[in-house]
């Protein structure tokens, strides 16, 4: 019986779920957690580069949702509202980390790893492919400033639309588009630098 109810709830729209939760239905909260925990974790992880910190951010996001459930208004899409909370918490975490002066490439464990780099004299496609490993990209993303980092994660890793990214970051559509382009160009430059440093 309970399972049946959950199945029904999973198919509910986010707006219905949050509305039910606002009316005191705790099962709706469980469904929201189940639906968004991995998405938000991936987002926070790509932002912070650390699983533990990312989990903490996601937990805090759900706690904030629980605490401030009535703050949500139907004018915004629920998922973007949730992403905004998680994004703000992730940025706060980064600021805290900077204050503690704990952030360094070696802390993130990138320096210790050995990466296989193919001969750069081969054609572009192959050379780029060789660099395009998850760790490299994560490392390069970590080197971007917050404003470029957030757009690239939301757009290219989370696969959100330009409109959703604009809604989450509260910036106009035109700004989102130009920022995504600049972020991609910068990321590509960072990857080249990393590759160059490794080959030197």
């Amino acid at each position: 019986m309970v399972k049946k109810e959950y199945r029904k709830k999973d198919s509910d729209s986010d707006e219905e779920l949050i509305q039910n939760f606002q009316q005191g239905d705790l099962a709706a909260f469980d469904v929201i957690v189940r639906k968004y925990k991995d998405q938000l974790l991936n987002f926070a992880f790509r932002f912070l580069g650390n699983q533990e910190e990312a989990e903490d951010v996601v937990q805090e996001t759900f706690l904030r949702l629980y605490r401030n459930k009535h703050a949500y208004r139907k004018i915004a899409k629920f998922s973007t509202w949730l992403y905004t909370i998680a994004g703000n918490l992730a940025k706060t975490e980064l600021r805290k980390r900077k204050r503690r002066r704990l952030v360094s490439i070696s802390d993130l464990g990138y320096e210790e790893k050995e990466y296989e780099i193919e001969d750069t004299s081969t054609d572009t496609e192959r050379a780029v492919d060789s660099v395009l490993k998850e760790e490299f990209i994560q490392h390069a993303i970590s080197g971007l400033s917050n404003r470029f980092r957030e757009v690239i994660i939301l757009r290219d890793i989370q696969g959100l639309s330009y409109e959703e990214v604009g809604e989450i970051l509260k910036i106009p559509l035109g700004t989102v588009k130009s920022r995504v382009n600049r972020a991609r160009l910068k990321l590509q430059d960072k990857l080249k630098d990393i590759k160059q440093n490794k080959t030197d």
Binding site: L41, N42, R46, V58, T124, V128, L132, E134, I137, I152
Partner: peptide, 22 residues
């Protein structure tokens, strides 16, 4: 070509998941 490859790769990057104790 480089950016296209990069974007395509990012779309396919494996998603991180929450731990069992989450």
């Amino acid at each position: 070509s480089e950016i296209q490859t990069l974007v395509n790769y990012m779309h396919k990057m494996p998603a991180k998941k929450t731990s069992e104790s989450f």
